[in-house]
Every structure is written in C-alpha cells, then in structure tokens.
Design a protein around this nucleic acid. Structure first.
Length: 255
DNA sequence: ATGGCCTGCAACGCAGGA
C-alpha cells in the first residue's frame, strides 16, 4: 500500500505531470491540493483512464482538494466542524479501511495578519476534528500541504526564516499539538538525507540552489505507524518543465 | 543587488501563494 500527497498548484496546468507521475510511482491513494477547479470541471475521465477514481472538493480560482484512489472512497467529509469555512481546504474519506484526511492548511501570508490568525484558528478546528476522527478510526493518515516547517532542520536558512510565517512558534506549536494526538511524522520516522525539502520558491532559482522548506507532511496514527515501511520526498517532478512548486511526499505500508 | 515567479481572472493589473 502506497499513500502520497502533492500540492499540484492548478490541476488543469499539472494534469500531464500528475498522470505521468502516478503511472511511474503507482500510489494507491494520492491526496492533492490547490486543484483550483470547481467540481463540475474536475478531470474524472482522464484520471479514470489512468486507473484512478477521485473525490473532489473544489472552488473557482483558489484552494481545492481531491483524493485519488484505486479503491472506492466512502464516508466523505468536506468541512471542519465549527469553522464555517467557505474555502475548500479539507477532504476526508475512508478507503480500504484507512481514514484519509487531506488538508490544505491556510498559508497565513504574514505573522500578525488576519490570514495568519485564520490559519491558527483553522489548525485548532482541524485538531478538534482529528481528535474525534482518531477515536473512530484507528488507521488514520492526515496528509497534505501544512504550510508549516516543523523544525529548523526543515528550513534551508533557519536564521533568515526565524519567526517568519511557515516557521513561527505558534505555527510550530500547532503542528506539535497535532502530533500530540498520537500522530507520527512519517518522514521523520526514517533516516533521511539532510536538506530535503518539499517546496522551493519559483523565484531566485531556489530549486537549482536547493533553497527550500519541508512544509508538506504525512502524519500517521500509531496503528499505521506500525505498518509504515518508508517515507520519502520525490524532488524530481520539481525539476520538470513548468512544474508545481511542491514535490510529492510518499509513504509505503506493509499489507 | 532583499527582488527576481506562477496561476487564474479578466484586465491591459490584480490577488494569492509561500
């Protein structure tokens, strides 16, 4: 069983990249973010031709999440209770006995802004939801674009980023609070090369210079942690022509 | 050299991203 996450930054623009990537990596479940598509324009047919079903929760221009899978998805949730959020940033489904929670955490723009406070409120609501979900679903994975670099080792230049959005202590605290629910950062459960990132700015030749952040994550419940045999970030698609600025994160599971 | 890019919408620049 292989589960992956990828912020595609427009599914319309990245469809060919996505199809060739899933053809090569063969994930059983793939969570994607920033589809930027309404559900009536979601490319179900192209994905079906590649062997994938999909459930989507999208909107025009911004945000949008979807879960692609070989098996059917059930018990779909598209809202974090208590938030009343019109932005399409969360999609949960049960696939093959695994509860899959796909998240596109707000960016936060800049520390102290309204968007930053919305990000922290969103993470609080997400934590409440995950706490309830874990009580019902022992096999749970929450994955996606968290827009948080959890530690300094997840940042190419920690001094330059200190206290900035994506790295600020309230954001990192919110991330640790998610782990405190009994979730493990699958990437850190295994030995990893240093300077491994999941996002590189389009500017400043950041990818070529490997100036990035690790902000895309795959968190697993204790039951799934037992079955997890590896986790890695595939930086290659970031080097393709007209790429997403994010790279996929992939985890493998026994059974 | 602290700004440099990309996407979508619809306009002849803007908002938003991270």
């Amino acid at each position: 069983m292989r589960i992956a996450t990828w912020n595609v930054n427009s599914l319309r623009v990245r469809l060919e990249h996505l199809l060739s990537w899933v053809s090569r990596e063969q994930p059983d479940i793939l969570a994607i973010q920033e589809t930027k598509l309404t559900d009536d324009t979601f490319p179900h047919a192209a994905l079906a031709a590649g062997g994938y079903r999909a459930v989507a929760s999208g909107q025009k221009t911004y945000n949008g999440v979807a879960i692609l899978s070989r098996e059917s998805a059930e018990q779909i949730d598209t809202q974090l209770p208590g938030l009343g959020d019109p932005q399409r940033r969360m999609l949960a489904a049960t696939i093959g006995g695994i509860r899959v929670v796909n998240v596109y955490v707000p960016n936060g723009q800049e520390v102290g802004t309204d968007k930053y406070h919305y990000k922290l409120a969103w993470l609080d609501a997400c934590r409440e939801y995950l706490s309830a979900q874990l009580a019902q679903h022992p096999c749970l994975v929450v994955l996606g674009d968290f827009n948080i670099a959890p530690e300094d080792r997840d940042v190419h230049d920690p001094a330059a980023w200190a206290g900035q959005v994506l790295c600020s202590e309230p954001e990192r605290f919110a991330f640790r609070r998610l782990l405190d629910l009994g979730l493990s950062d699958a990437f850190r459960a295994f030995e990893q090369p240093e300077a491994t990132w999941s996002w590189w700015d389009y500017r400043m030749a950041a990818y070529r210079r490997n100036m990035g952040l690790r902000i895309d994550h795959l968190l697993v419940s204790a039951a799934l942690r037992q079955a997890c045999t590896g986790c890695r970030i595939d930086r290659e698609p970031r080097g393709w022509e007209r790429p997403s600025d994010h790279a996929p994160v992939i985890a493998d599971f026994a059974g």
